[in-house]
């Protein structure tokens, strides 16, 4: 069992940190502009697809650098010519706009790249096992993913706490109107933050594409989980988003690894139920089966009992 635990932890970390790359951008955008960007994961998907196309001609590493930039520019354009226009009609319109955008991007991806899964491969340079533990390999590419995500977290933290831009952004998160009153160009900051946020999502797509498969449904699979993280973590709290990302990543990983379920629980309690009513599947449920929906369960519980999220300070 120890090997399962170790690898579950490692897997959870990889997933969690990857989720954080998405959540960090989303949470800053959400806090500053009040927009829950439904299309955030779509930019993640775009990142993977752009990188795939670029890698066909110029190799993986060029894609790693170019694709996030392209996605970031696209994101900034969406903010400038889409969101800003809708902004005057209120938050619901914004949310609905990003919802439509997510739908549109998925269809556009299918239009340009087709519906098949894409043969987007890890670079040869990282195609070796980093280490072997209990007979299972941990690929160098996963190590690379971990390193990049940690690097992004540290970089983001430094920028937000040490630089002038970071201070303005932090101020804009908690007191958006005050910042505008101080004479900062808030719309420009919005565009820039949106661009950087989507670029981060794009980067996550670039590094996740080869391992998590590049296909048109990849945004949908991740999309709502990222929201869940931002809400659980708490509005306007980057550390909250970080914590929630790791929590969700590890939770799902452990849930799959754990070989327990309702039968064990019932046995433990010494209970037995008749197997004849319509919901009797409940008694045979195990944890791994419901792992992917645990985040939503957590979301509902958190929102009921602590609407500000784990580390949030303000309510929407």
């Amino acid at each position: 069992m120890p090997e399962v635990l170790v690898f579950a932890t490692l897997n959870g970390l990889v997933t969690g940190l990857l989720l954080f790359m998405l959540a960090s951008g989303l949470t800053v955008i959400f806090s500053m502009m009040g927009v829950l960007n439904f299309a955030h994961a779509s930019f993640y998907m775009l990142g993977a697809y752009f990188a795939y196309s670029i890698s066909l001609y110029f190799g993986y590493w060029t894609g790693l650098i170019l694709a996030p930039l392209i996605v970031g520019v696209l994101g900034a354009l969406v903010e400038r010519y889409g969101l800003r226009r809708v902004h005057q009609h209120g938050h619901v319109a914004e949310l609905v706009f990003t919802f439509g955008l997510a739908f549109l991007i998925e269809e556009a991806v299918q239009f340009f790249w087709g519906q098949d899964t894409k043969n987007y491969q890890t670079p040869d340079l990282l195609d070796f096992p980093l280490f072997t533990l209990f007979g299972q390999e941990f690929s160098a590419y996963r190590g690379f993913m971990l390193a990049i995500s940690i690097g992004i977290f540290i970089g983001l933290y430094q920028v937000l706490t040490r630089s002038r831009v970071g201070l303005i952004i932090q101020a804009a998160i908690s007191h958006p109107h005050m910042v505008a009153n101080l004479g900062h160009n808030v719309p420009l900051i919005f565009t820039a933050v949106f661009g950087v946020g989507t670029a981060l999502a794009g980067l996550a797509g670039v590094i996740a594409g080869p391992v998590l498969t590049t296909f048109p449904g990849m945004a949908l699979v991740l999309g709502s989980i990222v929201f869940v993280i931002v809400v659980i973590g708490g509005l306007g709290s980057l550390p909250g988003a970080f914590l929630a990302s790791l929590l969700i990543g590890l939770l799902q990983s452990y849930a799959i690894a754990a070989n327990v379920g309702m039968p064990d629980l019932l046995a433990l309690l010494g209970l037995e139920f008749p197997r004849s009513h319509p919901l009797d599947d409940l008694w045979t449920l195990n944890l791994a089966q419901i792992a992917p929906i645990l985040p939503f369960l957590l979301l509902v519980l958190v929102l009921i009992f602590r609407p500000t999220g784990l580390m949030g300070k303000r309510e929407q």
Partner: peptide
């Protein structure tokens, strides 16, 4: 003998860990 939700799994590595183990 494992079931996973259809079309919802982001990363199969945790499952593979169990297979290896």
């Amino acid at each position: 003998n494992e079931f996973h939700p259809i079309g919802q799994v982001k990363d199969f590595t945790p499952y593979v860990t169990k297979i290896v183990a």
